[in-house]
Every structure is written in C-alpha cells, then in structure tokens.
Design a binder for these strands. Structure first.
Length: 419
DNA sequence: TCTGGGGTCCTAGGACCC
DNA sequence: TCTGGGGTCCTAGGACCC
C-alpha cells in the first residue's frame, strides 16, 4: 500500500521560516522587522523583509544591496543555527519517533501512531508551532497531508508562519491550481521546458500526454512528475539516511590554472573530505574532481579505485592527477574559478580496517612503501590533535593560507550530511 | 552583478560478461 | 560473415534540492 492510499493525512512537513535570518532577528531585537541578509560576499539567507525586495539566498552581496539599499548584513552566528535547528527537530521528536530530517531547518514527521496520545494531526501541528514559538522564539510553517510531496507543498503555501492541512478528497483540487515550480523536482530548466508546451500549472501537467512528458523530460522524470501531479507519491519516510558521498569545494574568483594555485587548494579540500571520512570510518572508492573555468563552464573527471581510500595525501594526489588531466584537455582555459573534490562509493563502515592504512594497496603507492605508513600515521596524529585542541589547531600550512575563505568553515559544516 | 557550498538522482554511451 | 539481448559497472554531464 502506498501512502497516497492511506486514509488519513498524517504526514507533516515542518520548515523553519527564513531560518538563519530569523535566528539573527531573535538574538538581536534591533534587527526585527528589518531587511537583513546573513553573509557578506554572498547572501546565505535573507529575512522576509529583504525577500520583498527580491533578495535571495546565493545572490552576490553587491546585487542584493542594489535591490535593497537599506539591507543590513549580519555576520552569522553559526553555532546558534545548529543549536536552534536541533532544538526545533527535537520538538518533533517529542511527538513521534518517525522523523526524517532533510536539513538543518526542515523535516518530515509521520504522526499516524501518536494521534491517540496527542489528538488529530492538525492539532499536533498547531502544538508544534506553538511550542517552537514559545520555547525557541522562531516561526515555523507546517504542511499536513497524506504524502510527503503534498505536505511539502502545503508548508510552502503556508509560509510565512502558517499551517495548511490538505484533507483527503481535496488534494487534487488543492494541487491543480498551483504552479508547476512548487513541485519537487521542477527547477528552472524543467519549468522552462514545460512552459514551451504550454504547461504552467500542476493541473495542466496532470492532463498533458504522458508520452509527450517523457519525450520532453526523459522517462524517469516524466513518469515521476505525472504521478506526483495526480498525488501519487510512493516515497516513505526514511528516518536513518546516510550520505552516499562526501565532498568539498572552493570558489576561487579567478585564478591562473597553475600548480601553485591548484596544488595547495586541492590539499586543503582533500584534508576536509578525508578527515570526515576517517572520523566515520567510511573510506570511498570513487574520486571525482570538478574544475570550473572563468566562463563558469565546469568539467568533471573521476576515477574508481580497487581499494577505498580515506588518507588525505592519497586523496590529494589522485585529485591532483585528475585536475592535471582536465587542464591538459582544456589548454585554452587559462583561469579557473572553482575546484571541488568528492568521494563516493563509500564503504558502509570500515571499523575492522581501522588499523590498516587504507589505500596502501593502490598501485600509486608501491607495496611495502614506507611512505604510505608514514602518511597514515600523520593523518591519525592530525586527527587526534584536532580532537583535543580543535580544528584550527593544525592544518596544511600553505593550503590553509591559500584557501580563500569566502565562506566560513562553520557554515560549511551546517550543510554537511551525516556520513 | 559575474554568481557559495553541501548533497541527490538521472541519462547516455561504452566496456565487459553471459 | 554477420548477428542478439540483458545486466552491471564506469564515466561525464546536467538538473535539482537545501
């Protein structure tokens, strides 16, 4: 039985409103009611007062200021975001163990099993909103429906600081007048393609020919969107999701495509990724690098190894080889604007192999080489020092300096998924 | 105004195996 | 001499989400 056939609307989607900006306004009352942006060079989050002017997350700070001359930039109290985000999710946990956290400020919950304790889902949603407001001082919007997709749309419609319950039987009517861009999986590209065939609402999407959709969007996407448009959403809640990859990237502005730029940057990125892998004992087999040139064209290159790796130096070396390959194939590009490293094909867990220098078997390091062992020791030493004295205690000197910190590390960490 | 950083999923072609 | 089909893995690129 899929959830769309269930009889009652018990799925909640809870979403803190303009989260980072709301936290800043909470902590500094003088900011309340004013257009503010978290960030500087780039807007990480905007308050509703700023959104009115068209300010959006990801927007360059300069452009935001043009749109909204009185925009106030605030520094970003990242540890407070983490604390308050966790606290809001904990309120959901108090009602049901069936909570799927999507990000720092957003989660699904299924309250089917706890209505006998706390009342019907809409009352539970009201209670959650009251508690988050009273205990944390933050606005949170909630959508309630039979499926995740509809609950998510309902919470978007409910914003800011609202509650929308979609009762069974009213779902299609609710859905079909809304724009396709509210659907999960419809971004700018898909919206533009749909507009080409005259589809702008979810209802129009639902009534359009299935074959045409598949031709337009591909078999998987066409099928999926058609199903969602008729409120058929097979997705269940997943309470224990683990990441399938881990990566790090760094925007560089415009830098020459030379070793003195990319070698230290890659070492810094490899350090960030590999130390996370080691911390959770999840080495990975596939290394992917991404190089973006000055014109924003991006190229990726990847390699899948026989043995999974989690050593910083090994990851940095492999990444460097891949980047050299990219640059050799694009000699006309003289400047790069971003470098990224990602590791996928992660092992479930490698507790048993903790004592072995993973990756040592790779042909890049000759068997029996002392180099691999020495590096393994260095990683472990660095990990231990950081455990005791903090992340900044030790690093890769040149790399640490070279890495243009356009975004603070604390902000990066907020976006990291559980490995 | 030249655009951050962390992820997921899908597609398409080619290699390779049965 | 030319020919089949399915499955799996890998690589590169793109769209999307928060």
């Amino acid at each position: 039985m899929t959830q769309s056939q269930a009889t009652a609307a018990t799925i909640l989607h809870a979403d803190l409103d303009a989260f980072y900006a709301s936290v800043e306004q909470l902590l500094d009352p003088s900011l309340r009611g004013k257009p503010i942006a978290v960030g500087g060079g780039v807007v990480l989050a905007a308050s509703y007062e700023a959104k009115v002017f068209g300010v959006r997350g990801g927007m360059p700070g300069r452009k935001a200021r043009e749109l909204c001359p009185h925009l106030i930039f605030v520094g970003g109290r990242f540890s407070e975001y983490q604390r308050l985000g966790d606290a809001a999710i904990k309120v959901l946990d108090d009602f049901t163990p069936l909570v799927e956290r999507i990000s720092i400020d957003e989660a699904f919950a299924d309250v089917a099993g706890c209505t006998h304790l706390f009342g019907p889902p809409d009352e539970i949603a009201r209670a959650i909103r009251r508690r988050v407001k009273a205990e944390l001082g933050l606005p949170i919007s909630i959508g309630v429906a039979r499926t995740k997709h509809l609950a998510k749309i309902a919470s978007q419609v409910a914003k800011p600081d609202g509650l929308v319950v979609v009762e069974p039987g009213t779902e299609i009517a609710f859905l079909h007048d809304l724009p396709v861009s509210l659907m999960w999986g419809v971004g700018p590209a898909t919206r533009a393609r749909l507009a080409e065939i005259g589809v702008e609402t979810i209802g129009q999407l639902a009534r359009s020919h299935g074959g045409a959709l598949k031709r337009l969007l591909g078999p998987a996407a066409g099928e999926k969107l058609a199903a969602l448009a008729w409120n058929r959403d097979p997705r269940r809640l997943e309470t224990h999701r683990r990441a399938h990859s881990a990566g790090a990237q760094s925007a560089l502005g415009r830098k020459p495509a030379e070793a003195r730029v990319f070698v230290p940057t890659l070492l810094h990125l490899a350090d960030r990724v590999a130390s996370r892998l080691r911390a959770k004992a999840r080495p990975g087999r596939t290394v992917t690098v991404r190089v973006r040139f000055a014109d924003m064209r991006a190229v990726t290159r990847s390699v899948t190894l026989e043995q999974p790796i989690q050593a910083t130096a090994m990851l940095a070396e492999i990444a460097e080889e891949l980047v050299r390959g990219v640059l050799a194939a694009n000699r006309h590009e003289r400047e790069i604007s971003l470098l990224a490293i990602s590791v996928s094909h992660l092992e479930e867990s490698a507790e048993l192999q903790l004592e072995l220098p993973l990756g040592l078997a790779d042909e890049r390091l000759k068997p029996g080489s002392r180099k691999g062992l020495a590096r393994f020791g260095a990683d472990r030493a660095i990990d231990r020092i950081r455990q005791r004295f903090g992340k900044e205690a030790v690093g890769y000197g040149a790399a640490a300096l070279e890495a243009a910190r356009s975004v603070p590390d604390e902000f990066r960490e907020l976006a990291e998924k559980e490995l």
